[in-house]
Structure formats: structure tokens, C-alpha cells
Simulated assay, not measured.
Amino acid sequence: MIYTVTFNPSLDYIVWVPKLTDGATNRSEAQALYPGGKGINVSIMLSNLGYASKALGFSAGFTGREIERLLEENGCDAEFIPLHQGNSRINIKIKSAQETEINAPGPHIPSEALNELFQRLDACGPEDILVLAGSIPKSLPSDIYEQIMLRLRGHKTRIVVDATGDLLKNALKYHPFLVKPNAAELEELYGIRCDTMDKIKQGAMRVRQDGALNVLVSLGKDGALLIDQHGRLHTSPAPSGTLVNSVGSGDSMVAGFLAGYLKEQDYAVAFRMGIAAGSATAFQEWLATKAQVLKEYQALKEYQPLKEYQPLKEYQPLQTPSQTSPEFPG
């Protein structure tokens, strides 16, 4: 089973305004309401691609109930822990000449609700994948990702971390199965410039050396780069298309990677499926369908033929005790 955790889910209220004017009454020409949050996006895209998952998190009030309903409507198994005070947040996204977002803080999460989440995660085993994605609300400890990874260390569960800054950096020592930074996040992580492919590769190698098994770097219109757990470098351009909406593209890439890997146990296939899913979503108003993803996957196969990827000359295998311990996946 694939589990996703979204600590701060939202209802995303999207409005299209032809011309946004500050200090005036603006009228939208269209609107949409979607469940939001990185883990939620991963679960919905997995469902679109035919893979079941359990979406875990916290829900509060009428907005929380609506998030769960929309998840179920999109084919996901939502097992959110109810909070008895407050409401799950509503994020407003205004589409105009420029995109403007107003993100709410989210409800307080008490310790007893967090302990209930821990108990549910204790069910994770060696055949499971856990996706920890996105930011965390202020009411939770800043090391919550580390707490979860340490708690599950003996379970041999493959853990995906899609986060930024210290959330990501501090998780690396627990050897996540997959991390997915972009170039800007690599720069933030190590204080380096990532303005060329060579520098991006060096940054990804550093993440790999610090503990991640697979490092998938999303590069937007320039495609992506992967250093897999065998030390092989994969690169690919992105499919051509018109950017419509970047929200959820990175989450779709994670879901596509997992779907490709589970289907073929092949990192080259996983890499290509990740790019296809991320790109297909970028070309839509919301998360892409399976047909849209497979269309981009086929386009990638046509101009980027499958080939053997050689180990990087600079690559050195991880030298840690965890490589031979039961909790090290792979």
C-alpha cells in the first residue's frame, strides 16, 4: 500500500479574473474548487494512474469534511483524523495576468491527534511506501518528518520526502527512498549556485551522498535529472506543450515515478513516467488523467529512446552502517 501524509490540507478555491484591480470590486469569469496539499495531489494522481493509496492527514470542520468528500470523489481512500476545533484551511488562487495566491495557516493539531497518526503509521511494513510531502503547520514540531522516519526505521518501509530546507536536509540521514528537489531548492539546501546542468548534477550527487537513495530533480520546461540508487545518471527534456498551471506538477511527478517503478521495477521507466505525469499536469487546469499522462510518456519514448545509463565517474557508494542493516531499503 502507498500512504500519503498531508499535514496541512486545504480547499483550493481558484478564480479566473480577466483584469485584477487592487482596491476595487473584481468579478471572476470562472471558478473551481479542488482538494489541495502535496500528499493529496500525489494520492489523486496515483488514483488516476490506477494505483490505490491511503491519504492520511487531519481534517477540521466543514472544510475538512469537503476535502475528504472530494478525495473520495476522485477515487482516493481518505483516512483523515478529525480535529474538534477550527476548520481546515481555504487557499485562494487568483488567475489573472499574474497568478496570486493567499494561503491560510490551518487549524491547531493537538498532541493526541498526532499520536493517533503515529499509531496508524505503525502499520507500515516492507511492502509499503510512505509519502511525506509539503510544509507543516506551526502547531507541529519542526522535526516531525524525522520523528516519523525514526519511528519507522525498523519497518523497512520505503519513504518518499518531498520537502524543502531543513525538513529535507534533516531527513536525508534516514535514507529516504526518493527525494524530489528542484534547482532552487538545491541552492537553498547547500548554498550553491545551480545555474548549469553540471552544477545541478553536482548538487544532486551531494544529496545522494548525504543519504537519499534516489534523487529526482525537477527542472520545469528543461525536463528533469535523476541519480538512482545504483549511481546511474538519467536526464531527459520535458515534452513540448503550453504551461497552463504549475500547481501539482511536482506532486504528479512523484506519483508518476512511483507508478512507473511499481509497474516495471526499472528506474529509467519510473523517471520517464515521472516527467510525463508532471508535464501532463502542467498542461491542464488541474491534475492530469491517465490518458494525458500516457500521451506524454509515449512522446518521451519517441524522441528520447530507452538506453543503458552508465554510472557517474564521480559517484561513490554510500558508506554507512545502514547499508547492511534491516532498515535500509533497496
Rank of each mutant, 00 (worst) to 15 (best):
F177H: 03
V254F: 11
P181H: 06
V217L: 04
G256R: 03
G154Y: 09
R208Y: 10
P239F: 06
V179T: 10
V161F: 12
H155Y: 14
H230D: 15
K180V: 11
S240I: 11
G250N: 00
R206A: 11
V217E: 04
Q202R: 14
K173L: 15
M253G: 03
V179H: 02
D166C: 08
G241V: 03
H155W: 13
K221H: 12
H175S: 12
D228E: 11
D210P: 08
D162K: 07
D166T: 11
K263E: 12
A268R: 09
D228N: 14
V244N: 06
G250Q: 05
L178R: 01
A268S: 12
G203R: 00
R193S: 15
G154F: 14
E188V: 06
P237Q: 00
S246D: 10
Q209W: 04
S246E: 10
A183P: 02
R193I: 14
G220A: 11
H175E: 07
Q229Y: 10
K156I: 04
G203P: 02
P181D: 03
Y267S: 11
D222Y: 09
V161Y: 10
S236Q: 11
V160Y: 05
K199N: 07
G250V: 05
C194S: 07
L233C: 06
N182S: 09
K173H: 14
A259S: 13
G231M: 09
L216K: 01
V217H: 04
V179D: 01
L167D: 04
A255C: 02
K169I: 15
M253S: 12
G211R: 01
D251N: 12
E188M: 14
D222A: 13
G220W: 02
V247A: 10
S240L: 15
G256W: 12
A171M: 10
E264Q: 08
L168E: 04
S249H: 03
L216I: 01
K156N: 13
A238F: 01
V207R: 09
G154S: 13
M197V: 12
K180M: 14
D210T: 07
R158L: 03
L189G: 00
Y261M: 04
C194M: 03
L186A: 04
D266T: 02
I227W: 06
I192N: 02
R206V: 10
V254I: 13
L178P: 02
E187H: 03
A163L: 07
D162F: 09
N170V: 01
V207H: 07
S246C: 12
A163R: 01
G231I: 06
R206D: 05
P237C: 05
K263S: 11
L216A: 00
S236A: 15
Y267T: 09
V207E: 07
V215S: 03
P181R: 05
N214S: 06
G211E: 08
